[in-house]
């Protein structure tokens, strides 16, 4: 990477030398001017609060008065004594393994499907993409209703077909699968990305493979997949990062399905049913804005930060394109 600003490289080095000093200063000012919104924003809304979160994690603070130094007490509490922490982490792991995988597989399958359809592909693409845009609160409410064990249309139909009727959002064993269905409903973003990537695969390679007598399975295996590898990686890692931030859907699903939606005077149990929909971001809200145990909430926030940054680093390492394009 060049160390100084861009210059007309054909000019003579000596002629430019005097000009350089002031030109470089001007350039630095220009750079700062263009970057200023982001520099300020990063300081005010990222670095400062991050440092502050780290500080609070070592204090006892309930939002009144001032914070008092507490050493590692909050860290010990969260890791050893906070009964929601490990279930939330386990749920996150479940969602990473099952939900992210299924979303990637479904996105690819639906993308391949739409590409193979000759007539009406445009309409299908539109229909399949639309749910992705449904506001999360609305989509979640819709699914809690659709999957309501007592009166929901899904169980009504399953019942009429004589099939089993799961408890969905009311059964700890089915609540995460229900959330996964909701996530699959909104798989349109991945579908579109995969469609673009699939269309990029050179036709000649398929033809060559066919000439070699490769069936559709081995054509997929040896031609399509290698081309999709970078996109698959991108989809998995962004999926994992989105799972780290998974908040609105499990929160609303738990509240609405439990029948206790935070009416005044009601104790809202996070993660209904039986902590099965808890995620780390919900713990930040529970500790920070319901119990006002700001120190412990900041510990969770830092754990969340560490996990997210680890995955972000993985993304940047494997996808140098992300940073590159230096031309």
């Amino acid at each position: 990477m060049p160390l100084t600003g861009s210059r007309d490289r054909t000019s003579s080095f000596l002629d430019q030398r005097v000009l350089d000093v002031s030109a470089r200063r001007r350039e630095t000012l220009r750079n700062l001017a263009f970057l200023s919104p982001w520099l300020l924003g990063t300081g005010l809304f990222f670095l400062y609060p991050l440092a502050s979160t780290a500080y609070f994690s070592f204090t006892h603070y309930n939002g009144f008065g001032t914070a008092t130094w507490d050493g590692l007490d909050n860290w010990r509490f969260v890791f050893a004594d906070y009964p929601f922490f490990w279930p939330a982490l386990r749920n996150t792991l479940w969602l990473v393994v099952v939900m992210v995988t299924l979303r990637v597989v479904a996105g690819l399958a639906i993308g391949m499907l739409v590409i193979r359809i000759k007539r009406g592909a445009g309409l299908l693409r539109t229909l399949f993409y639309a749910p992705f845009l449904a506001p999360p609160v609305a989509g979640t409410l819709a699914f809690v209703f659709l999957l309501n064990p007592g009166t929901g249309p899904v169980n009504t139909i399953l019942g009429r077909l004589g099939l089993g009727e799961p408890g969905w959002f009311n059964d700890p064993a089915w609540s995460k699968p229900a959330l996964t269905l909701l996530a699959l409903w909104g798989v349109g973003d991945l579908m579109v990305i995969f469609m673009a990537a699939l269309l990029d695969v050179p036709k000649e390679q398929y033809e060559a493979a066919e000439l070699d007598g490769a069936g559709s399975v081995s054509r997929f295996r040896f031609v399509t997949l290698p081309h999709l590898r970078p996109i698959l990686g991108f989809a998995v890692i962004t999926g994992v990062i989105a799972t780290m931030q998974y908040y609105t859907q499990p929160l609303i699903a738990g509240q609405v399905a439990s029948g206790q939606i935070g009416g005044s005077g009601q104790q809202v149990e996070p993660g209904y049913p039986a902590k099965s929909t808890l995620t780390l971001p919900q713990l930040v809200y529970n500790l920070g804005f319901q119990r006002f145990d700001i120190g412990a909430a900041c510990v969770i926030a830092l754990v969340l930060f560490a996990l997210s940054m680890a995955f972000a680093a993985a993304l940047m390492r494997r996808d140098s394109v992300f940073l590159g394009g230096d031309g």
């Binding site: 809304f45 990222f46 400062y48 609060p49 991050l50 502050s52 979160t53 609070f56 990062i241 780290m244 931030q245 908040y247 780390l280 971001p281 930040v284 809200y285 920070g288 700001i294 909430a297 900041c298 926030a301 830092l302 969340l304 930060f305 997210s308 940054m309 995955f311 972000a312 993304l315």
Partner: peptide, 10 residues
Amino acid sequence: MLPPQVVIIP
């Protein structure tokens, strides 16, 4: 990549 919850408290 930062979850908004990380910095929400401060």
